[in-house]
């Protein structure tokens, strides 16, 4: 039951982009075409789940035994950035088709605040390894969902006669804000009603 709770929480209730406002640069930057949005979304999902798992291990096997938990943020950034770089190299070498689909987005995510955000959240919530991984995965899924919706909206907006002063990024921000407002409907009480937790 708690696993379902975690998934629902990070996809809808505390969606990284729409309620916690993390990872906004790719949300605006890569959401102008659905095809790019899907590629970016899956890359983020992949990186978030790996990063949460690795940072959980790092927290429990390095930081806590050495009693240097206060270095969490700095070291997490280092670990995540290195992991993403390493994964990019491995993917490029071993699987060219996967590299073509995800590879170009990977370097963009090395220092994404959403990735660091979910790693820190999972550690602060005291999740175990599986829960951390799941939190990362569902946060990535939430990001994918937000990006996909946004790209659909923006593709329609492209054809619409938008007032001159709002064209491009301003109208994207406004639509993003309205979408965030809609996502506020998902709250803890709704979650409790659905899964009975």
């Amino acid at each position: 039951m708690t696993y379902i709770g975690i998934i629902f929480t990070y996809v809808f209730v505390s969606n990284l982009v729409l309620t916690q406002f993390l990872g906004l640069c790719p949300f605006i930057g890569v959401s102008n075409k659905t095809e790019n949005a899907v590629g970016m979304g899956f890359a983020v999902m992949f990186v978030m789940s790996t990063a949460s798992l690795i940072t959980w291990a790092f927290q429990h096997f390095v930081l806590i035994p050495l009693n240097v938990v206060f270095l969490q943020t700095v070291t997490f950034i280092l670990v995540i950035a290195s992991i993403v770089q390493l994964v990019e190299m491995v993917v490029r070498k071993t699987s060219p088709p996967l590299y073509k689909a995800l590879g170009i987005y990977l370097p963009l995510i090395t220092t994404n605040c959403g990735v660091l955000g979910i790693a820190l959240i999972s550690v602060n919530e005291d999740y175990n390894a599986v829960e951390s991984f799941l939190a990362g995965l569902s946060a990535g899924l939430g990001f994918l969902v937000a990006l996909l919706f946004m790209s659909a909206i923006r593709e329609r907006l492209e054809l619409e006669r938008v007032p001159k002063y709002l064209r491009g990024t301003p109208i994207a921000f406004i639509s993003g804000g309205l979408m965030a407002l809609a996502f506020m409907a998902f709250d803890k009480a709704l979650l409790a009603n659905i899964i009975g937790a």
Partner: peptide, 9 residues
């Protein structure tokens, strides 16, 4: 980490 990445590269 940087050194490790250089080797990996």
């Amino acid at each position: 980490l940087g050194f490790g990445l250089a080797i990996a590269a």
